[in-house]
Design a protein around this nucleic acid. Structure first.
Length: 580
DNA sequence: GCCGTTTTCGGCCCGACTGTTTTCAGTCG
């Protein structure tokens, strides 16, 4: 998508401008702002230009005459001359160098001018040669920090999956709660916003005895390094490799601190601007009118005093939620306890787990409190997963019927549905015969092979599958695996259109490595009115607990209960499927 | 460079920390 390319370029321009320390310091802010807007926009700048030219581009928030011309230049020539000129003037790897903690554009400029540092390699060499400490504005400590920063970068694994971090954060919080000095405690930051990947975990605490809480925190057995320790905060690394910041606050600031540390940064900036317009000032210490604090104890009162409805953390990305909160139209987001069943569960029927595999999944579903479960094993094309053929599906169907009567005795409200996760082959056909598919309660179909097709071909392939009257659900529709594999190339708008026309349901795959659809696509699907289902794709009963991550992602995509079909009863859900 | 229900000019988010200074610039979240 051209928006991402443009955003990257504008961020880069902004960094180079910052480095030059230009005469118009706010120019770089303008570039960063527009980069951020483009990044999070659902509307492709290329399309906007095609439809309405320069004038339409200038309708984009943050785009004026100058930037509109630059977007046009990029669309026409594939490059932007100003950036090329900036790079030529100061040929350094700014993006790379800025990843070193403590180095920003201005210091990098000095390092380049005085020592000819162009990249991290140069930087390491000059630091080790002890040339940096004597520079004006630098010193021994800075040089040491740079070397540490390079080391840190070398072994840092950046971001962790929400599915890895959230359970650990909950464990830490549970442990801290045991302290009688802890009055209140909450997760904050991107964990609270349920971002799919997490850099570090923020935890906030109200306590009358900060010292004791901090000391306890940094001496937890799983702590391997203390980065920083103050009287009210600490920063540590756990042995699993992730960092965590703890802050101890007073009760009367808890709301404003929670708001501030939950972010996102962009959301907070927007809120502070609203505060300024009202003659107020917002910070982590409260909402102030002059020297007087007028809100701070709870998040709700801060939003209220700013004239806004309270905004769920998952929506706080400054992607339109503030405008919606102004008119009190924040959607009633779907919740975990709205979910009545999971229709994408693998029993391993084909690798000999048989009935037992199904029973274990059913027991878990009942324990969770579901009203139904769908068994959907892989089909024959996926030999490596012991995919089922038509005959095995028929046998499985019999077994499920008998299990249904068995569990009926235990819980007459519970239903086992029989489906499968069939394969969409390269030509868009399904690897199981239509007669066999028609005998199931529902059919999921997904792409599991040949993922590197052209955009046109892949779109056509999935559309053909959606047009099959036996295919009810498309699993993990974009195929991405977080930090491992990109989405396949598809025209998602086109897919949404056909999904709506054919009544095909798009899956929000709740597996923490997939979360596919992602938040942006969920929002597009919602806007288009396409139906979605949240499934876990569990390959063992415990993984049915992944549902929570799918629901979080749905909430980040602003989805409501009515957008998600497995918030409905089994009768209603069967009526949504295509087969009679 | 962008923007406007106080503004077409004069603003543009806030506070803390660090390391370097001798009163502050740069960086971070």
């Amino acid at each position: 998508m051209v928006n991402q390319e443009l955003a990257k370029i504008f961020y880069e321009i902004a960094d180079y401008l910052d480095m030059e320390g230009n005469a118009v310091p706010f120019k770089s802010i303008a570039f960063k702002k527009v980069a951020n807007n483009l990044e999070s926009s659902n509307e492709d700048a290329g399309n906007i230009y095609k439809k309405g030219g320069l004038k339409a581009l200038m309708e984009i928030s943050g785009v004026g005459k100058g930037i509109a011309f630059k977007i046009e230049e990029y669309l026409k020539t594939g490059k932007i001359k100003e950036l090329i000129a900036l790079k030529k003037r100061t040929p350094v790897d700014l993006g790379g160098l800025m990843r070193i903690e403590g180095l920003g554009p201005r210091k990098i400029k000095i390092l380049y001018q005085k020592l000819g540092v162009r990249n991290i390699k140069d930087l390491e060499k000059t630091a080790k040669a002890h040339k940096i400490a004597s520079l004006f504005g630098f010193g021994e400590k800075t040089e040491k920090n740079i070397l540490e920063g390079i080391e840190f970068l070398k072994r840092s694994n950046e971001e962790f999956l929400l599915g890895e971090i959230l359970p650990k954060v909950r464990k830490i919080i549970a442990e801290l709660k045991n302290l009688k000095e802890v009055k209140r405690i909450s997760e904050a930051g991107s964990v609270r916003r349920r971002k799919e990947t997490i850099g570090d975990a923020d935890i906030l605490i109200v306590s009358s005895n900060p010292k004791k809480v901090i000391d306890y925190f940094i001496s937890m057995p799983s702590v391997v390094k203390v980065w920083a320790k103050g009287s009210t905060k600490a920063s540590i690394r756990f042995k699993d490799g992730f960092d965590s910041d703890l802050r101890v606050l007073s009760e009367k600031q808890f709301g404003s601190a929670l708001q501030y540390f939950t972010g996102s940064k962009e959301h907070n900036i927007a809120l502070r601007k609203i505060a300024i317009n009202k003659g107020l000032k917002l910070s982590e210490y409260g909402l102030f009118k002059g020297p007087k604090i007028i809100a701070g104890k709870t998040e709700e009162e801060i939003y209220e005093k700013l004239g806004l409805q309270w905004i769920p953390p998952e929506m706080r990305e400054n992607q339109g939620e503030i405008e919606v909160a102004k008119i009190h139209k924040i959607p009633q987001l779907v919740e975990l306890n709205n979910i009545k069943g999971d229709l994408h569960c693998h029993s391993h029927w084909g690798d000999g787990n048989g009935k037992e595999g199904i029973e274990n999944l059913v027991k878990m579903a009942i324990r969770i409190g579901y009203e139904y479960i769908g068994i959907s094993d892989h089909t024959k094309f996926l030999r490596i997963e012991h995919g089922l053929d038509e005959k095995q599906l028929a046998e499985q169907n019999k077994a499920i019927k008998s299990l249904n009567s068995k569990f009926y005795i235990l819980n007459s409200n519970f239903r086992i549905l029989h489906g499968c996760e069939a394969n969409i082959l390269a030509d868009g056909s399904i690897d199981i015969k239509d007669e066999a598919l028609a005998k199931l309660d529902y059919v999921i179909a997904g792409v599991h092979s040949q993922m590197k097709m052209s955009k046109e071909k892949m779109t056509e392939r999935i559309i053909k599958a959606m047009e099959n009257p036996n295919v009810d659900i498309i699993s993990h529709p974009t195929g991405r695996v977080i930090q491992q594999r990109d989405e396949y190339e598809i025209d998602f708008a086109q897919i949404l259109k056909v999904a709506k026309e054919t009544g095909t349901i798009l899956e929000i795959n709740a597996s923490p490595v997939r979360l596919d659809l992602n938040d942006n696509n969920i929002r597009k699907a919602k806007e288009m009115g396409a139906k979605m289902i949240i499934n876990t794709d569990a390959h063992q009963p415990e993984q049915m607990r992944f549902m929570e991550y799918g629901v979080s992602q749905a909430r980040r995509g602003w989805a409501e209960k009515k957008d998600i079909i497995n918030t409905q009863s089994v009768e209603k859900i069967l009526a949504v499927f295509k087969r009679p």
